[in-house]
Design a protein around this nucleic acid. Structure first.
Lengths: 239, 239
DNA sequence: CGTGTACTTGATACAAGTCAAGAATAGTGG
DNA sequence: CCACTATTCTTGACTTGTATCAAGTACACG
């Protein structure tokens, strides 16, 4: 049996046995969190980073008027706030979108690890760098694509990430996102999310019912979304 | 005389003398790049990261239809593509917005440094994590704020970052951004940038002429933009 | 002193927001 | 197992913010 964290990092690079050993003792005991609860609040100063074993959560920020913007969706296998090791005070919160299982990695242990395992540290660093790449891609779609393409792009991203995590196949996956959540991701009102969702359906690109998503025509959806998976770095990439 | 890179990192944490020594030999010889040239193109696989000694540049992505979206502005003292150490193939390009002076740090040297100086490595890691925080903040303004607030927010961010770099004071600074560039940052057409610029002027919040920007009423501008500087981590924050 | 770049303004079109109401659907308790 | 409730989704009518198209004007520069 191989740890979920080891498995995740192995997607990107090989791990020496002492590196696997170091990782195997990094995570503390699993903890369950209920859907809707705030795993981290903006302004928190966590003393550990949190690994998402199962379930879905999202980074969020709130405006003065109370509007919510989600800035990243986290899927099982993600370190949801590894960056809190370095950026002590959180600039955003993290909300559980479904019931989740999470496991802590103490910052002290991570700092110690960074002194002993340089290559492993770079691999963790890469994880935070990929978060940045995802943010950039979202910026591009927000700034330069219309609502329908944005939604299509999100669907493509989620499918690729879930497939890499072994949680999707045959162009089918499940995410606990309501149309309100989608609006908070895409910077749209729920009403407009519904309209562009209908548009994608009527064009025969997707089905989406409850949490179940089915991509009917991947090629056309990806082309409509101008989706190019390279930013996700799902292929092997030694550091 | 203290190197610009050392100076930059000292803003966030102390450096031991051996760390300063390691940094002092990290950067290669200065190189001049002309305004408008592409320092890095999307898809490049650089073997060094680039430190910006002087001038302004920006990360950009292009859509299929040729629209440009800028995803971050870099000011002197920034490592403009430190993340290329880890994410080998660039997901975006970097364009010089003005004449710039840059200096390379070879990836081989950075990798070696990460094996010998864990604390220093974490400090560099922090730089890339702050990039992510800036991206997130832009996502929030893109998704949930109108054009005028977005422009106001950008002005606040640039002022704070330039002031921290010693390049701005008295609510006054210079940036080589045209209204076309601003549109590419904010996800707007140049025409609309002009209109919201006029709006901020008529409200007595700013003056902006050529590259010269003057903030007439910081408190009101910041409040209008819902600007909160904490995401920039300009205060001391040992890692 | 002419020419190009950046900026400005106006008229009109369109994408997305707002407000409102009703239809599905999923839980929940009797 | 059904009735009640609360979400979530769907649709329509209308408004608003930003884009588009088209002409200018102001400057900087060679």
């Amino acid at each position: 049996m191989i740890g979920a964290l080891v498995q995740k990092l192995l997607r990107r690079d090989d791990l020496a046995s002492d590196e696997r050993e170091a990782l195997s003792v990094l995570l503390g005991p699993d903890r369950r969190v209920a859907a809707g609860s705030l795993i981290i609040k903006p302004g928190d100063r966590p003393t550990h980073s949190t690994f998402l074993v199962s379930g879905f959560c999202a980074r969020y920020s709130l405006t003065v008027s109370g509007d919510r913007q989600l800035t990243e969706i986290n899927v099982p296998g993600d370190f949801i706030d590894l960056h809190s090791l370095l950026m002590k005070q959180m600039d955003h919160g993290i909300v559980a979108l479904s019931d989740c299982v999470v496991a802590p990695a103490q910052h002290d242990d991570l700092r110690r690890l960074s002194g002993r395992h340089a290559h492993l540290t770079r691999l963790l660093w890469l994880e935070t760098v990929i978060d940045g790449a995802i943010h950039r891609q979202w910026l591009v779609t927000m700034g330069r694509q219309n609502a329908a393409s944005r939604l299509a792009h999100l669907i493509c991203e989620l499918y690729m990430r879930l497939e890499a995590a072994g949680l999707a196949q045959d162009h089918r996956f499940a995410v606990p996102l309501t149309q309100v959540d989608l609006g908070d991701i895409l910077g749209l009102t729920p009403v407009h999310v519904n309209r562009v969702m209908m548009e994608l359906r009527h064009q025969g690109l997707i089905e989406w019912k409850g949490p179940q998503v089915l991509i009917l025509d991947w090629a056309q959806l990806a082309s409509f979304a101008e989706f190019d998976e390279t930013y996700l770095r799902l292929r092997r990439d030694p550091v």
